[in-house]
């Protein structure tokens, strides 16, 4: 698809994470695991092998005791909106990962995925994880699995979907209620869980939405914006030292 061909839909879902509100409690990451059937193993301390859709980064100001400051930075998939392609969709040889131009969500279709991991290499945000093992849960905890999200299999890549199954539910509800499905909104599990309301979510193209207002905040920034990947995840921070690190790479 060339730049000219691409038609901007009226719906571009995006997220704004206010790091001044974030208390680093990790509820977003936990809620994501529960919602999306993310498997876990007895030892998850090798972070290169651990599957985490909502990963949290640690940023610090480089100062010494007394002036030291740090913040946690929750990192879902950025759902890059670069005109031509997202970095991951560009490299996928089998169209397993594509951007849904109806709503801007970058999807990953597991049965198509051949596990080549080009997308993992391409993603500058480390937002993609590989299933090195068959997913497994303690037997009794299989009861907790969410039927709305399929479990994955060994050998495929997975990542944050902005909980798009919740979008499908919201659209189905809109059909039933005979309202405009394109106006349907929803909250991903992380935004819903956040106890400080640091995570906002909505249609960036809707000028009335909370996210559209927040991205105009002077504190707003995006990660690695110099790469022109056009992330649809924005951050807010009042600290220069946080904003400055956004272009440094992680």
């Amino acid at each position: 698809m060339s730049e000219e061909e691409r038609k901007q839909s009226a719906v571009r879902f995006g997220m704004v994470i206010d790091l001044d509100k974030c208390s680093g409690c990790m509820a977003c990451s936990v809620a994501c695991q529960a919602e999306n059937n993310i498997s876990f193993r007895p030892d998850e301390t090798n972070k290169l092998r651990s599957i985490t859709w909502m990963e949290v980064f640690y940023l610090q100001n480089g100062k010494d005791y007394g002036e030291y400051q740090y913040t946690y930075l929750p990192r879902p998939c950025m759902h890059c909106d670069a005109p031509h392609h997202a970095p991951c969709t560009f490299v996928c040889p089998v169209n397993a990962t594509t951007r849904n131009e109806e709503n801007g969500i970058v999807e990953h279709i597991y049965p198509r995925c051949i596990g080549c991991r080009y997308c993992i290499v391409a993603c500058p945000y480390h937002a993609r994880d590989f299933n090195w093992w068959d997913p497994s849960w303690p037997k009794s905890m299989e009861s907790m699995l969410n039927p709305e999200v399929s479990t994955r299999m060994r050998g495929v890549v997975e990542k944050c979907t902005f909980c798009h199954h919740r979008l499908l539910n919201a659209r189905a509800k809109a059909y039933l209620e005979e309202t405009d499905p394109d106006k349907a909104t929803y909250l991903p599990a992380c935004a819903e869980a956040c106890p400080t309301k640091a995570i906002s979510f909505g249609n960036l193209n809707d000028p009335e939405s909370e996210v559209a207002a927040l991205i105009k905040d002077p504190r707003a920034f995006r990660l690695l914006s110099k790469l022109h990947t056009e992330p649809k995840v924005y951050y807010l921070s009042k600290h220069d030292w946080v904003r400055k690190q956004a272009d440094k790479g992680f």
Binding site: M26, S29, A34, E192
Partner: peptide
């Protein structure tokens, strides 16, 4: 399958901590 904060509850107003999640 999931525990979430109750948005109608006046103490936590919809949020949830990682332990409850």
């Amino acid at each position: 399958v999931l525990l979430e904060g109750n948005p109608e509850h006046p103490i936590n107003r919809g949020g949830i901590c990682p332990l409850a999640a």
